[in-house]
């Protein structure tokens, strides 16, 4: 998406931003087209679109509110009701509708997973870019910091951090990001190491381009596919992390997520009687993460068969 020299016009900062966004959008839709080339990829995309739609339109799709107490016609609360026509996924001990909680929970699960993925990849990519491109001491320092980050046990760290800092969603996202950047930093760096040996970089260097320009105009566009795939896979990873953290009781008690549903189910000690309460949210997690895997697999098969995870 390099701009032709002839088309260069006076650029206001606003204009540059718009163009940047447009080229980013174009790049992403180009990447998505790649995924559409296989059946597995289309299946994964369909899954992702389904869950995103569920999250966006939760208010229209969910028959009940997330914390609405469901009652029988005679006014008694519908507690631990097995799946029926009125409640396809049954009800909980607190007489909430499981399906409705699931739909509402999709939103929070996705928002946290997406936010944590984007911020982790953004930071990780920039660290990887700098380390790989500048090399030498910069590389050494940045990679040793990354090594140290790999020594932090994530789930225990998240528990301690959430205990002391509070369980708001924004803190959860920050905690996930503060460790999550380490993986993309390593992946992107090794890609940059090979890219910087390519002729177009030395050409740009000999033309006197600044290192910032080389990094962001010449190298960054080439790692975009890799960053994209890492982001997608991270969404699945983050969804699992969010579920685990919430399950251990460190979720935000004011809003529902899949992990939180499982936490309430386990803590209520009614697992034995209410199988529907524990099975449904887990299946949702599985379907979401599998969709992510399918998209990732297809994408890597096309873009970089050597990096396939499975």
């Amino acid at each position: 998406m390099e701009v032709q020299p002839g088309h260069e016009r006076r650029r206001s900062p606003h204009h540059t931003l718009l163009r940047g966004l447009r080229s980013l959008f174009k790049a992403i839709s180009g990447q998505l087209n790649i995924v559409g080339t296989s059946r597995l990829g289309r299946l994964g995309l369909a899954g992702l679109v389904f869950f995103i739609a569920l999250g966006v339109f939760a208010a229209y799709l969910a028959p009940y509110g997330p914390y609405e107490h469901v009652v029988y016609p005679d006014g008694k609360p519908a507690t631990l009701e097995p799946p029926s026509r009125a409640h396809p996924a049954g009800t909980t001990l607190m007489s909430h509708d499981v399906l409705s909680q699931l739909i509402w929970g999709t939103r929070r699960t996705l928002v946290i997973a997406l936010a944590a993925s984007f911020s982790s990849i953004f930071i990780g990519t920039n660290i990887g870019l700098a380390a790989g491109y500048f090399g030498g001491r910069t590389d050494n320092i940045l990679m040793r910091i990354t090594d140290v980050a790999f020594g932090i046990p994530f789930l225990p760290f998240a528990m301690v951090a959430l205990m002391t800092l509070g369980t708001e969603d924004i803190i959860l996202i920050a905690v996930m990001t503060s460790v999550g950047w380490r993986t993309p930093a390593r992946i992107i760096r090794s890609q940059v190491l090979t890219l910087r040996e390519r002729p177009f970089v030395s050409v740009a260097e000999s033309l006197g381009a600044s290192s910032g320009r080389i990094l962001y105009r010449h190298i960054a566009p080439n790692i975009l596919p890799l960053a994209f795939i890492t982001t997608i896979l991270f969404v699945g990873e983050s969804a699992l992390v969010e579920a685990s953290v919430s399950f251990l009781g460190f979720g935000n008690p004011e809003s529902i997520s899949w992990g939180q549903m499982l936490f309430y189910c386990f803590a209520s000690q009614r697992m034995r009687v209410a199988w529907w309460w524990s099975v449904t949210p887990g299946l949702a997690i599985m379907l979401l993460v599998l969709s992510v895997f399918f998209v990732g697999r297809t994408y890597e098969e096309v873009v970089n068969p050597r990096l396939r995870e499975w």
Binding site: G236, L240, A243, S244, F247, G259, L262, C265, F266, M271, R272, W275, S278, V279, P281, G282, I285, M286, V289, L290, F293
Partner: peptide
């Protein structure tokens, strides 16, 4: 694709 705590719950079930 599933968190270990969920597999544990299902195994218990």
């Amino acid at each position: 694709a599933v968190p270990p705590f969920w597999t544990s719950m299902i195994a218990l079930l």
